[in-house]
Design a protein around this nucleic acid. Structure first.
Lengths: 144, 144
DNA sequence: ATGAATGCAAAGTCTTTGCATGAAC
DNA sequence: GTTCATGCAAAGACTTTGCATTCAT
């Protein structure tokens, strides 16, 4: 999904396409992983001098509600990424360094035994670590 | 693990056993599930009129660091429960109503394919829903 | 021209910190 | 008697809201 796809998606939901939202769309289109509100604010701040945090929050929340972005709560706070385009259920491998995610097709629920009287509503399965690029960089740094 | 076990654990780590900490120990010994800082504050507040939030936070953080409690970040905030006494790796079934947890022995990592160059650090697997008691109560309420 | 998006300021929630008093050892 | 725990007050981080102005449509 590229910048224009995101913009079309926003427009189709009735949102007005401001310059700022165009930049926001570009940012998420170009980012493979998760971004915190602060990450977004810092990036956007380079282009808009008077940028305020509340606008960033408003747009992130709006895009989350419209299904353009998805929001995940990590130990160190809330983060956002493009909503996964894959329609089939899947989970993620997440790089702790660069934030990039990789889909995992295996869903653990198939193999999980749950008591008969327990009504399942949802589940969460995430794997964290370092991707090839980041693990390599770290090792190299450690060898200095 | 009962109240006295927890108190012994605190004492062995050099903590002073105040009346308030005794109550805190009892609360967690008697609670099968997760408690938010506010839950703890509300409960403790019944016994200590001048109770302040900062003391609750301080004690929760302290007990988390000592390994007496464990802290988990949920969508609706941070919560605490007694640290699992089971030594073997396991996951949890969590009731959205009463917060009670049940251990799951199955670990999804065995069956998950991860790229060779990805270095795994940790993973998270949690199942949410309603336990037998709560699911029953909800259905009964719905039938009124 | 109309209504939505933005910036500003302010408030709200949750959590932490500094300091004096009081309690545990 | 020392040292740690508590309460109070204040500050800090993060997020949301109200309102006037500006901009997309």
């Amino acid at each position: 999904m590229d910048t224009d796809d995101i913009i079309r998606m926003m427009a189709s939901q009735g949102l007005r396409i401001t310059d700022q939202r165009r930049t926001l769309a570009r940012l998420f289109a170009d980012t493979p992983g998760y971004l915190s509100p602060k990450d977004v604010y810092d990036y956007m701040g380079r282009f808009y001098s008077g940028l305020s945090f509340d606008t960033v929050y408003r747009n992130l929340r709006l895009l989350d509600e419209l299904g353009v972005l998805e929001q995940v709560v990590f130990e160190d706070g809330v983060k956002f990424k493009l909503h996964c385009r894959e329609h089939d259920h899947h989970h993620h491998l997440i790089c702790l360094q660069c934030g990039k995610t990789y889909p995992l097709t295996h869903c653990p629920m198939e193999a999980t035994d749950v008591p008969d009287d327990f009504v399942i509503v949802k589940h969460k399965f995430e794997v964290f670590g370092y991707c090839g690029d980041c693990a390599g960089a770290e090792t190299a740094a450690g060898n200095r």
